[in-house]
Amino acid sequence: MDLKEIIKPENLVYKRTECLTDKTLSYCPGCGHGTVHRLVMETVDELGIQSDVIGVASVGCSVLAYDFMDIDMTQSPHGRATAVATGIKRCWPDKFVFTYQGDGDLAAIGTGETIHACNRGENITIIFINNGIYGMTGGQMAPTTLLGMKSSTTPYGREVELMGNPIKITELVAQLAGTYFVSRQSVHTPGNVRKAKKAIKTAFENQKLKKGLSLVEIVSNCNSGWKMTPVESNKWMEENMFPFYPLGDIKVEGQLVQK
């Protein structure tokens, strides 16, 4: 059968959401950031909230997120995205406000802002990308870098005696009274992408309930920082990241999920 007979508007089953701009993403080939950007914008598209959403980009690889998302956005100082989002949401309680932060931004320099925004129960959504490394500055150790994992500042692997432990900030904020929905997902397989999309959608829809903060962590790859091919990095992520950062919902409707 000729492909031309299939490629017709009436047969379209998947295309890039128009809530993304035409700009080519600045991320490395195979980086999960692009997929998560798309899921967030698909969510905005499907919920029909483009005119009511305000995003907060942070500092790190995703600093230019505002170039790729076709929505009103601001760009926060390093680590302060949840404080910036708090300022916006308090002034616009009926807008959908979200932050898009990496692990360095959210779990190292911004730990205080993260914990207090979660604890206050700000009615915002946090999209948290955890790839266990500082991508933009050249692959240095992150708060989430696994023990034994190599980075440019742990060239012989992270040792607990020298560099301390990796932090599971998502489990930590799930303990706080102000969080309503906390989930950890990934975007490396079609099935995982669909689950992540569902979690992100829930996290946005929750803002209408005004019952607290929703956080979705995406455990993602950093093939450049990890010095692997994209396909290898996803395999490494499954074998090494997921045992320490297990996927699934951690808190739903304000209740911790019993495992």
């Binding site: 047969n11 993304l20 992408v193």
Partner: peptide
């Protein structure tokens, strides 16, 4: 598409594509 005859239009390729490169059609 190296083997276009085998495509079922399942969209899995487009779903995992980080760069939104792929558009999928199905009949």
């Amino acid at each position: 598409m190296e083997n276009p005859d085998d495509c079922t239009g399942c969209t899995n390729c487009a779903v995992v594509c980080p760069d939104g490169v792929l558009t999928v059609y199905r009949i």
